[in-house]
Design a protein around this nucleic acid. Structure first.
Lengths: 367, 367
DNA sequence: CTGAAAGCGCTAACAA
DNA sequence: TTGTTAGCGCTTTCAG
């Protein structure tokens, strides 16, 4: 009577109760409050459930009633799928997942394809809170998150959003230490490879104005830290070439390195704002027969596992811990109402890809 | 009257409707069926919503009503966090996420810490279906999934579960091709490094009985494929040393390589059942001063990006595609009722870590 | 220890 | 184009 024949309507708590001649409360208690009813009765209920194929209380209905979804939503910059290709993002996810796991909460990846400028997914997410991972300051999905009446914590970007928690790392200090390392090695001709600075695709040189105006504070800080260090050593920042890439991949790093070295064959060090770019730069160097670190120093930022494996000089940030803190900030907020800011430390890691600046005259950079 | 003062009770659809003097349907339509009401009225509703801070229809309530959660659940073997450290898992996730994204569905990672033998999380997940990634045949969480009245698709393992879709790859064929490659290069003394074969921690040699009895069909198939190839070449499998590791990490691979080479210094090739293990083996070789491939051939399985970068000889499986297929199987199942099995092809990739078997006499393997 | 009553917030027919 | 009527399946005081 209720539907087409092929739709098997599973039993509900009510139908089970009716079947057994007990009240719905009793059935509910059998699942949620075992101590509120006698063991035999409970077993009877569970047995009947098994027999009738009742899969236990419907999670959605329960969520509606209890007003808790048992999951936290995760909003990522890029297409959802990108996150899994980026080792920094996966490290973060690992930490966040860990925190969720410990709290018994699910982690819902909110599907936001960049083209799909469709904010609906954010509204549709049944979650008790959001973690926002490194999005641009004017991301529409992010704004949609803010409209939801649930707590939110931001990782990295954007900074300074009113009323939301944030966890980040000491980007500027880390890069500054790296810069000092480079200048101490005698490098004066330094080139920079950086990640995207704006929402629009742009691949190529980025002048200081563009560096400042970026909507990605993390990049601004990292570049700024390097600038601080170089300035301390008397290097004029205006003369430092910076090449930007929209994509974040080893391939992008390789092509950026090629571009920068072609236009500035005299640079002795390539400072990249991420390990992924640096790995690409190393790859280019290897292919072009440029000896690292003898003829070219290459550095990264992040401290991803592969970087460590290849001995990259970099700045390590506690990615996993960052994710964990983000989760804890969200899940262990008592009834705190003032937003909390956490900044984790970074650490210079000197590997085998940085060495003294080349003493010899300019090489022909190529083969 | 309804609660403590610090709990701001957000507006609901009903209260908004009351406020405007329209029916709840109208408000609902303003959000879900814009064409069902006049533009001015709709604007009026939306404006009032903004004014009253109504965040739009509650997703959980909607889900209850529409009987669709808008998300698929993902069940992983290991601790949730492990998945993000394993490049094969992340590749799979990437593909799955892609499929979800395209369908506008969320992806809910179900928190199952292995110690927390607590199946509750599976019951608590508000999802329209489950994807199960490579779990053991007798995993309790998996059984809990099967009890839920939603469609399920399994990736890789377990095999042969009644009524559920499955996507896998040609593990055996791939490994067989790799084995043929090795024997063609003249290798006869071959050692194997494999992943866990049982639920209990076991690190060390795995004899043929243990290989057969494993509850992880994927390992069985890969080892079996190699066995086929070696047998074809007249190598007696009983004499092939297999070292197992419970953890799946480069470190585990390195230690396994060390162990195997110590007990069998005469092997000329190390076939690993995963790239991650192989990368560890390479690392050990580098540290021990063993030239690859001159003195030792090392091979993997999977074709992860890093393997490609280091030139590992391996068997490539379409991990991302596998995830995508899993998603499509779940999301695009019309009203199909017979389960579907998809097996994707694998491909031998010859890199620079495999070479002819050493012609010289036995080396002292180590230093 | 068990039951009755009262919704959680929403959508989907169907009428008006 | 708008409103009315019924629940979706469950939990939770509060009495018995």
């Amino acid at each position: 009577m209720t539907g087409s024949p092929h739709v098997r309507r599973p039993a509900t708590l009510a139908s089970l109760a009716a079947e057994l001649g007990v009240s719905r409360t009793t059935v509910s208690n059998a699942y949620n409050r075992p101590d509120q009813l006698s063991a035999p009765l409970r077993e009877k209920v569970l047995e009947a459930a098994r027999r009738l194929g009742y899969p236990g209380p419907d999670p959605v209905a329960r969520s509606l009633r209890t007003r808790r979804a048992g999951a936290v939503g995760l909003l990522l910059t890029e297409a959802l799928s990108y996150a899994f290709r980026d080792p920094v993002a996966t490290g973060f996810l690992e930490g966040l997942a860990l925190a969720c796991e410990q709290a018994g909460q699910g982690l819902l990846l909110v599907p936001v394809s960049p083209e799909h400028a469709d904010v609906a997914a954010v509204h549709q997410a049944g979650v008790d809170g959001f973690v926002v991972y490194s999005v641009s300051e004017d991301d529409p999905h992010f704004r949609a998150v803010l409209e939801r009446p649930v707590p939110t914590v931001v990782c990295d970007q954007p900074v300074g959003v009113e009323g939301v928690d944030r966890v980040g790392v000491a980007d500027r200090e880390g890069m500054r230490a790296l810069g000092a390392h480079l200048t101490a090695l005698g490098h004066r001709k330094i080139g920079v490879l950086c990640m995207r600075l704006g929402p629009q695709r742009h691949d190529g040189p980025a002048d200081p104005a563009r560096q400042e105006r970026t909507s990605y504070p993390v990049q601004r800080e990292r570049i700024g830290g390097l600038r601080d260090a170089l300035t301390d050593a008397g290097v004029d920042w205006a003369g430092v070439p910076v090449v930007e890439r929209f994509e974040h991949s080893p391939e992008a790093g390789a092509s950026a390195a090629r571009e920068l070295l072609a236009s500035h064959p005299d640079v002795t060090a390539l400072a990249c704002t991420s390990d992924v770019l640096a790995i690409g730069a190393l790859q280019h160097a290897a292919e072009a027969g440029i000896a690292v670190p003898e003829r070219l120093t290459v550095t990264g930022f992040d401290g991803v596992p592969e970087a460590e494996r290849v001995g990259l000089t970099t700045v390590r940030q506690p990615v996993r811990r960052k994710g964990q803190v983000a989760g804890e900030l969200l899940l262990q907020r008592g009834d705190r109402n003032k937003p909390k800011q956490v900044v984790l430390p970074t650490e210079l890691v000197v590997g085998s890809t940085s060495g003294p600046a080349t003493q010899t005259e300019k090489f022909f950079s190529g083969w």
